[in-house]
Design a protein around this nucleic acid. Structure first.
Lengths: 337, 337
DNA sequence: CTGAAAGCGCTAACAT
DNA sequence: ATGTTAGCGCTTTCAG
């Protein structure tokens, strides 16, 4: 019995062990139909025997494919990482890609230096595709991506680029309508809203949906803006309360901001939902942890992630274009409204 | 003016543009000292001119280095991703590695299938090192890692393997002592604790620290166990309250579990901190969001991540061994104790 | 200090 | 259906 060498086995070793040529081994390994069953069996056995694992660098060199996609986080980091949605997206994407043996590399693109690194990485041909997380319309990276002509898909629409960068997202507008209508149906009369940043799809579209139900004119003073952070939710709630002390409901554009709003309402002595009904958006983990528990709009985030990955893989596999997908939301009623 | 070709420039193009050989270009690019300043300048200019970026696959093939490290998430996913600490670790590690032009690929190792994928990836030589997150002592991956002889560092100690897998971590035991001593100093008499899983360093060492201050015998009934999830914190708090209705303080092994405990205390009509003082651990974002705000132990997570990465890079750079590092914690007093 | 040349391990085109 | 062979782009001896 030969002593196992330290060196990792190459396709050459497999060829020798199975009695066929390197070419045949390669074909067998890559599912080429022109391989006899006998050869296939021999190769499989040899692979098991030698513990052979393909060297991606070598394969990559000739195929010009890397088996890697990059997840680019454009959001200023702190904000994004505070966002519980992010974890879900990362987890699901990692797993879906792994199922196809595609590695996911993480990159942050918070400042210019970061961005340059991302571009260099992509120009270096180190990835087959890009998964964009919360990219803003003005992001300089977007232009670079286009010149690089590398498959790219966004998780959530990229405002102003909906036609050019395909995406998967929840139906923000319809979700907001559901919540607004629900508050109306509960008999609420002075319904305010706290939006996310208006240069994000969630910020803009949820406001649109809100206005679809409540009308555009009436609500000017009842609209305040946040940046999805808990803290901004508090600030916006204070602003709203100062402006319209007798408001009786507020639709908040994210659960995290809603948690902030809840804290301010308590601090100001308003009972929820008796005095003020509060509706959130996301149905993230935090929604079940607030006091009272949050009535909110559930986004099918796992599906969003799954679909985003699917679109990207299709593009990588050669599809010329793919259609964006928009997934339905659900109203989840708990205690706050 | 020549039309720019689609093809990415290779080292060959740079050689031609700078009038030196490929070998010299390579030397210049890799900081080899034996390059004349003239040649160096010419190469630099040519690189800028052509927009050349090295092809990692080709380099990898010859150097046997990949410029990639894998972050392996051993924890059952859901739990880990619910953990706010994770985001910090990921963010800091990504950035630190990027500074060294090392890519971070994410892999989950929740079940056997996942684990096999990770091993295959590593055997394939696709990564220079491994960053372990919350690996358990019994994790089969650990054995594999040893046979692969690939540099590996853990973020947080791997129980029972402290000697073999280097790590960076907060001083859990001392942190727990700080909190326990603080509760004692506040005049609390019946101090309970809710631990994390005892097969994790945080679970075990924080309990040890607690016992260091309060003694081992006295506390049997005052110890309950959770799994770091919010829900488990609620369950443990109920158990404790049923067992020892007159407890007047509880040290909870994580902020998330403490949030759960807080909810149960309110539900049972106990005032915090008047009737029961509550101490957490982590000083994660949630600590400022609970009501009342949580008094807790701050772990220097960013430093932990930074140090973990540093250790790994040292190993990859050829160090035979590195010393684990343990970082000091701080008591952060807010409203709950 | 620099050029030439030999591969690194693999796939794909070309012959059979 | 299979063997042979020519590179993929780079680093690294080996000569000079």
């Amino acid at each position: 019995m030969p002593v196992t060498n330290k060196r990792r086995p190459t396709i050459h070793d497999v060829a020798r062990a199975s009695g066929v040529s390197r070419g045949t081994v390669s074909r067998a390994l890559n599912g080429d139909p022109y391989v006899s069953t006998a050869a296939l069996a021999a190769v499989r056995r040899a692979v098991a025997e030698t513990g052979y694992v393909v060297n991606r660098a070598a394969r990559s060199l000739v195929t010009q494919r890397t088996g890697t996609v990059v997840m680019v986080l454009s959001e200023p980091q702190e904000k994004l990482f505070e966002d519980p949605n992010f974890s879900v997206l990362l987890r699901v994407a990692t797993r879906r890609l792994a199922q196809r043996d595609v590695a996911l590399v993480m990159m942050v693109a918070g400042d210019d230096g970061d961005r340059e690194r991302v571009v260099r990485y992509l120009r270096g041909g180190h990835a087959d595709g890009v998964l964009l997380l919360s990219a803003h319309s003005g992001d300089p990276l977007l232009a670079e991506l286009e010149t690089l002509a590398i498959p790219a898909v966004a998780c959530g629409a990229v405002l102003g680029r909906e036609g050019v960068i395909p995406y998967a997202a929840a139906d923000d507008r319809e979700g907001a309508r559901q919540m607004a209508q629900y508050l109306v149906d509960q008999g609420r009369k002075k319904i305010a809203t706290i939006t996310g940043p208006l240069d994000t799809p969630g910020g803009l579209n949820r406001l649109e949906g809100f206005c679809d139900v409540l009308g555009r004119k009436a609500v000017k003073k009842l609209i305040a803006h946040g940046d999805y952070s808990r803290h901004s939710g508090e600030a916006a709630m204070r602003e709203l309360l100062d402006r319209v002390p007798d408001l009786d409901a507020v639709f908040v554009g994210s659960d995290l901001m809603a948690a902030g709003a809840l804290a301010v309402l308590r601090e100001r002595g308003r009972r929820v939902p008796e005095d003020v009904a509060v509706g959130g958006f996301d149905d993230s983990a935090i929604a079940g942890s607030t006091h009272p528990k949050l009535t909110t709009v559930r986004q099918p985030l796992e599906q969003v992630a799954t679909e985003t990955v699917r679109l990207l893989l299709e593009l990588i596999d050669g599809a010329d274009t793919v259609d964006s997908v928009i997934l339905p939301t659900d109203l989840v009623t708990r205690e706050s409204a």
